[in-house]
Write a protein that binds this DNA or RNA. Structure first.
Lengths: 276, 276
DNA sequence: TGTTTGAATTGGTCATACCACTGGAAGGTC
DNA sequence: GACCTTCCAGTGGTATGACCAATTCAAACA
């Protein structure tokens, strides 16, 4: 048994996670004052520096508002938080997936993907075309391996997004990918049809290659719409299930770590060191 | 002369701003190590706590990766940062507007707006319809006042987004609005046609009212596309100008504070206390 | 040549003290 | 009583010094 790597979080990270969860779950309603820093120090059993680092991050996330002398007040994250909070909202405190958030992410993906492909076709360059075709070829030779296809498809979109020349799309893609990664293990089956749709991917690559923006847009719309509908069906089934037995949380969908402990060697990029 | 309000930033905010600007502007390339905390303390002349709070925020933004014992390394923000960074990218170090970023934001707005209206029409409720029509009426009675129309149009979209039931759209809207606010003064003229397009707004409200999702989508597309094209024209002109005289920065577009010092009493919401 | 070891470096944690701002209570003024 | 001023307890902001823990890499070693 390969000894699992110890997950070392800093204290301020732990404080941040705990407080943000309290706020996001609504146990600390918007408008109320957080306990003073010195009280949090006592309750949590950590030093004030760790508390302050966490509070600063909460303020940056739009979850609280800090005012010297006035205390730290909880905000309504729906009106003050940015897209980066999505990852925290996706996973519920019980470890399950928030179907409402998941559906929102899929809707956003469907709205953006066609425009990403369109812009990429407009502003494409030689290396991008080569990389896209290379990825499609790689997908062709790794059929059956859904996890591998999922990674390749993700990389396919990564190339598209970064060749679109739209920095907002690039950043939003990073956020969405981070959110998506949390449940990729659970989605690998549902998204199977989309990630193994070789023709769909090739159609986009070809359209980009021939600088045909409308065709790229249409191809992307078709590809993404397919998987989106499948996920919608699953989510609706889960929502019904959830409504039936209110007592127990959703069990079908689990966090990536739980559902897919053996992390496949997919991300060829350096250790994702973003929001730690 | 009305004494200007003193802008009181905390030290860690100042450190964060300075370091993030260094990274975003490329003066600290991805992969290089930041100076050690104790060295930053000396160079910047602040205490270590302030430096650490700033570094933690940089890590949360996806600009750096902190490793105990290993130092703090600069990341490629295009691949690791989330959408929340957009606000920092919009304003250049010389105070001007980054036309590339501005164009990206407008493209994203155009891609999302139709789907927001569509979903809102699908999931609308009585109060939303009433508020939308109320806002359209308010716009009708405050014609000529562009700044007022701009605020009302922004609120119009705020209602649409929060009635769409899509939490990703809500958060993305918060991010985009924050980015947009930085240059709203500069855009009030260019967006004039769109924000005073009463029929366009009313068409969306009516479509939402009658639960006609396709119509809402089409109406939103028409409304947003108009203003988007106008901004594109302006941005392209600015880009050409910029290319001509490389020596001097863009002067036409200025930060909101500079171009519109008298902040109109528009935002009826509580003090925006997000990222402070 | 490859391995081990250990000291220097760097981030993480802790405790304490004091400064700066806010909000409300106490007291005074009309 | 209503309004205003003053003052202080509470809260966040800043500063300092010390020590712990992980990493790195060069020196010592097999």
């Amino acid at each position: 048994m390969p000894l699992q790597k110890i997950d070392r979080r800093t204290l301020s990270d732990a404080v941040f996670d705990q407080l943000s969860r309290e706020i996001v779950d609504g146990r600390m309603a918007p408008g109320v004052l957080l306990p003073p820093e010195r009280e949090l120090v006592e309750v949590l059993g950590v030093n004030r520096g760790a508390v302050r680092e966490a509070l600063k991050r909460l303020a940056q996330s739009g979850l609280v508002q800090i005012q010297q002398g006035g205390g730290t007040r909880v905000l309504d994250y729906r009106r003050s938080a940015g897209l980066d909070l999505l990852g925290a909202l996706m996973v519920r405190s019980d470890g399950g997936v928030d179907v409402h958030v998941a559906r929102s992410v899929m809707e956003m993906r469907r709205a953006l993907a066609p425009d990403v492909a369109r812009l990429c076709a407009q502003r494409r360059d030689a290396t991008t075309v080569a990389r896209l075709h290379g990825l499609v070829d790689a997908m062709a030779s790794s059929a059956d391996d859904l996890a591998q296809l999922q990674s390749l498809s993700l990389e396919f979109w990564d190339v598209l997004v970064h060749a679109s020349g739209n920095v907002a799309y690039q950043l939003a893609f990073n956020t969405l990918r981070e959110t998506y990664e949390q449940i990729r293990g659970a989605l690998v089956i549902v998204m199977g049809d989309e990630v193994s749709d070789l023709q769909g991917h090739r159609a986009i690559a070809d359209a980009v290659s021939s600088e045909d923006a409308p065709a790229a847009r249409a191809a992307a719309e078709a590809l993404v719409d397919h998987g989106t509908r499948r996920v919608f069906e699953l989510l609706e089934a889960l929502a019904r299930e959830d409504a039936d037995r209110r007592t127990k949380p959703t069990e079908v969908l689990e966090t990536a770590d739980a559902a897919d402990p053996a992390n496949p060697p997919n991300t060829s990029k350096p250790p994702k060191g973003g929001p730690e």
